[in-house]
Simulated assay, not measured.
Amino acid sequence: MSVGKVREFDIKNGNWSAYIDRVEMYFVSNKITVDLKLPTLIALIGEEAYELLSTLTSPRKPSELSYDEAVNITQTFTT
Rank of each mutant, 00 (worst) to 15 (best):
E51S: 12
T74L: 15
S63D: 13
P39C: 03
L52P: 04
W16D: 04
S2F: 08
E47A: 12
T76D: 03
I32L: 03
T74D: 01
T33F: 02
A49H: 03
S2H: 09
Q75Y: 05
T76K: 13
V6T: 12
Y67F: 15
T57Q: 07
D68L: 13
N30C: 07
I45F: 04
I73Q: 08
L52M: 14
V34H: 04
E24Q: 10
T33S: 15
T55L: 15
T40N: 00
M25V: 08
Y19A: 05
S29T: 10
K37H: 15
F9L: 09
T78A: 13
L36N: 07
W16S: 07
Y50G: 08
G46M: 06
F27R: 03
E48Y: 10
S54R: 07
I42E: 04
S29M: 13
P39N: 06
F9S: 03
A18G: 08
A43Y: 08
L41H: 13
P59V: 13
L41T: 02
A49N: 06
L56H: 03
K61D: 14
I42T: 02
W16L: 03
V6A: 10
T78K: 08
A18S: 11
N15H: 12
T55P: 00
F9E: 01
T78Q: 14
M1L: 13
L38T: 09
F27L: 04
K37S: 05
I45T: 02
T74H: 07
K31A: 09
F27C: 02
S2W: 04
Q75N: 13
L53E: 03
E64V: 01
S29N: 10
S17D: 11
L38F: 07
V3Y: 11
L65F: 06
S17R: 10
I20R: 05
K61T: 09
V34R: 09
R60I: 01
V34S: 11
T74C: 11
S66W: 00
S66M: 06
R60T: 04
V28P: 00
V6M: 09
E47V: 11
L41R: 09
Y26G: 01
E69C: 10
D68W: 03
K5L: 11
D35E: 14
S29L: 11
A18Y: 07
D21Y: 01
T57G: 06
N15W: 02
T55E: 07
E69S: 08
T76E: 14
L41W: 14
E48D: 15
T79N: 10
L53N: 04
